[in-house]
Amino acid sequence: MICGAAMDFANRLRPSHLALLMRIAETGQLQRAAQMAAMSQPAASRVLAEIEARAGGALFERHPKGMRPTALGALCIRHAKVILEEYGALEEEARRVTSGETGRVRVGAVTGPAVGLVMPAVRQVRAEAPDIEMTIGVGTSNELVRGLVDGHYDFIIARLPPNHDSRDFRLHPARNETVSLLVRPQHPLAGRREVTLAELLEHEWVVQELPSPIRQAVEAAFHSQTLDTPPRVTNSSSLLVVLALLESTDTIAPQTREVAQMLAHGALGAKLVELHLAEPIMVSPCFIIQNRFRPLHSAAERLLRAVFDHL
């Protein structure tokens, strides 16, 4: 019975009741505590009487110099302080979650947009909301769309494969991608202007395997000029393999413009240059893709807005 009565007492207490107890303990005066709790003194007296009735005894002793907690009152006040602090923490954390100041975001992208769009957006959000936990995946469009459907990503930047129904997604055009051809500074064509595709055929290449969009774009560029594709090709999507070949040979490596500019500026210790082509090589465009049936939470919305800022 005692346990049941205690549970009933606890369940009937409201945060406003606990706040009143704290104010009485702080001020020692019921009238002042009522003012601080934004209630009339009669209402405060009635609430205190109800609490004491449920607690089974007086919570304060009346003295000429004010009200002092009894042993039962000190117990209630101690727990009230903890409970109100937890309420405050809950309110603050809920505010931060709903405003997108905290939370977890998982975004996926193909390599170029990962460098050119996602990373600048992540840096922007980090400056505004450093407590957001970011997970960034890089992969092929097929892998990324499959991850989006399975719930592994909040949104992705990729190409929508033909085996997926566009009606299942929200799509927004992202940047068009341009292919840059990276070589070491000692390459015979480095520094030349208006390099033609025909001049590139005699050199070795390291290219992603089909059906990668970059490989398709490079081969389409050669075909559009009725040229054969480069005959000496190493197939690899590994950036480490690419860098190793570029460091010691006159290999040509097609990369998206964003990745090429990053490497040309010394990222990963690379010392590389871009060839100046007479005609640009364009890759099929990417899209910012969301699952139409899964709304974004606030932190993901914040990152998505930052991505749009960098389009």
Rank of each mutant, 00 (worst) to 15 (best):
residue 13 L to K: 03
residue 281 I to N: 04
residue 73 G to Y: 04
residue 186 Q to R: 04
residue 173 P to D: 05
residue 289 I to M: 10
residue 126 R to E: 10
residue 296 L to E: 14
residue 1 M to Y: 06
residue 36 M to E: 08
residue 167 R to I: 07
residue 228 D to N: 08
residue 310 H to L: 08
residue 248 S to P: 00
residue 270 A to D: 06
residue 249 T to S: 14
residue 287 F to C: 09
residue 72 L to V: 02
residue 202 E to F: 09
residue 174 A to K: 13
residue 94 A to P: 01
residue 152 H to E: 07
residue 231 P to F: 04
residue 105 V to S: 14
residue 179 V to H: 05
residue 279 E to V: 05
residue 152 H to I: 06
residue 197 L to D: 07
residue 210 L to H: 12
residue 55 A to H: 08
residue 84 L to P: 04
residue 26 E to T: 10
residue 124 Q to D: 13
residue 43 A to T: 12
residue 240 L to H: 10
residue 204 E to D: 04
residue 206 V to Q: 11
residue 95 R to K: 15
residue 221 A to K: 13
residue 215 R to C: 08
residue 253 A to R: 04
residue 18 L to A: 11
residue 154 D to N: 13
residue 194 E to G: 04
residue 227 L to D: 07
residue 242 V to Y: 01
residue 142 N to Y: 02
residue 213 P to Q: 13
residue 169 F to V: 09
residue 155 F to I: 06
residue 220 A to W: 05
residue 181 L to P: 07
residue 201 L to W: 13
residue 4 G to H: 08
residue 208 Q to G: 10
residue 124 Q to V: 07
residue 170 R to I: 14
residue 76 C to Y: 01
residue 9 F to T: 00
residue 235 N to P: 01
residue 306 A to H: 09
residue 69 P to F: 03
residue 286 C to Q: 12
residue 75 L to D: 03
residue 75 L to G: 05
residue 214 I to S: 12
residue 45 S to W: 06
residue 25 A to T: 00
residue 201 L to A: 12
residue 140 T to S: 08
residue 25 A to V: 02
residue 250 D to F: 12
residue 121 A to N: 12
residue 44 A to Y: 04
residue 141 S to Q: 06
residue 4 G to V: 00
residue 252 I to T: 10
residue 167 R to E: 15
residue 132 I to C: 13
residue 34 A to K: 03
residue 229 T to D: 09
residue 233 V to C: 11
residue 293 F to H: 15
residue 153 Y to E: 06
residue 67 M to L: 15
residue 309 D to W: 01
residue 259 V to L: 11
residue 142 N to V: 03
residue 24 I to P: 07
residue 227 L to M: 11
residue 106 R to I: 05
residue 37 A to T: 02
residue 133 E to S: 12
residue 87 Y to W: 03
residue 132 I to P: 05
residue 119 M to F: 12
residue 72 L to I: 00
residue 188 P to C: 15
residue 5 A to E: 02
residue 206 V to N: 05
residue 173 P to L: 12
residue 115 V to N: 11
residue 184 R to L: 04
residue 139 G to C: 14
residue 28 G to N: 09
residue 272 L to H: 05
residue 58 A to N: 00
residue 110 V to A: 13
residue 68 R to N: 06
residue 213 P to L: 06
residue 148 L to D: 11
residue 300 A to H: 12
residue 71 A to I: 07
residue 155 F to M: 14
residue 5 A to N: 07
residue 233 V to I: 11
residue 75 L to F: 00
residue 95 R to V: 01
residue 177 E to R: 10
residue 181 L to S: 13
residue 22 M to Q: 14
residue 166 S to R: 10
residue 98 T to W: 06
residue 191 G to Y: 03
residue 106 R to E: 15
residue 58 A to V: 03
residue 169 F to H: 13
residue 39 M to I: 01
